[in-house]
């Protein structure tokens, strides 16, 4: 699909162009916004362009590692940015505003909003330490190691808390 001649591409760039459509789908699913997914793909491309791909044994695996980490990092950055922006903001919290304030995809309707509210409630109901770990990680953009330090517990304990939170919250997101 690209205009670039195949011979000049690194194996990593080959993998990128081959898996680009799949990655776009995943980025869009996670961020809920197509244009954000496109931006992320662009960021990914700039990253792989700067990498010396000669020593990479499995370009596809390497590409997915870069892409998925970028996606997870991006979500965390976005969450902590949104939190800063909305802290003490005086905007109305009416449900109708959710679309604009969350950057919700245009196809997301009221049901989606209700799901988000149900999850928000479930987060409140998590055990205190689990909720604390989950919030520090997601809201303050801290790595598991940083959360561990902040809470005075081991990194594996933090992982358990985060995994417990996600396992508890995921069922609420099932399509009905």
């Amino acid at each position: 699909m690209s205009s670039e001649p195949a011979s000049t591409r690194s194996p990593l760039a080959e993998a990128y162009w081959r898996r680009r459509a799949d990655l776009l789908r995943l980025f869009a699913a996670r961020s809920g916004a197509r244009d954000e997914a496109e931006d992320l793909l662009q960021e990914l491309f700039l990253k792989i362009d700067a990498i010396d791909a000669a020593s990479i044994a499995n370009p596809d695996a390497y590409l997915f590692r870069l892409a998925m980490n970028l996606m997870v990092d991006h979500q965390r950055r976005r969450i902590s940015r949104q939190r800063r922006e909305r802290l003490w903001s005086t905007e109305s919290f009416a449900l109708d505003n959710d679309r604009s304030s969350f950057g919700e995809a245009p196809d997301a309707g009221v049901e989606r909003t209700e799901t988000v509210m149900a999850i928000a409630t479930a987060i409140e109901e998590l055990p205190v330490r689990t909720r604390q770990a989950f919030r520090l990680h997601k809201l303050e953009d801290l790595t598991h190691a940083e959360v561990a330090q902040r809470m005075g517990i081991s990194k594996s304990a933090v992982e358990k808390h985060i995994m417990r939170a996600l396992r508890r919250l995921l069922p609420l997101t099932e399509d009905r």
Partner: peptide, 25 residues
């Protein structure tokens, strides 16, 4: 598998949004 994984990412995205959901009404 890709479609299933995409579905899970969509669900994780909802959780991400819930984390910054508005203050309790």
């Amino acid at each position: 598998h890709l479609a299933a994984f995409e579905g899970v990412q969509r669900r994780l995205g909802l959780i991400d949004r819930a984390v910054t959901a508005p203050a309790p009404t």
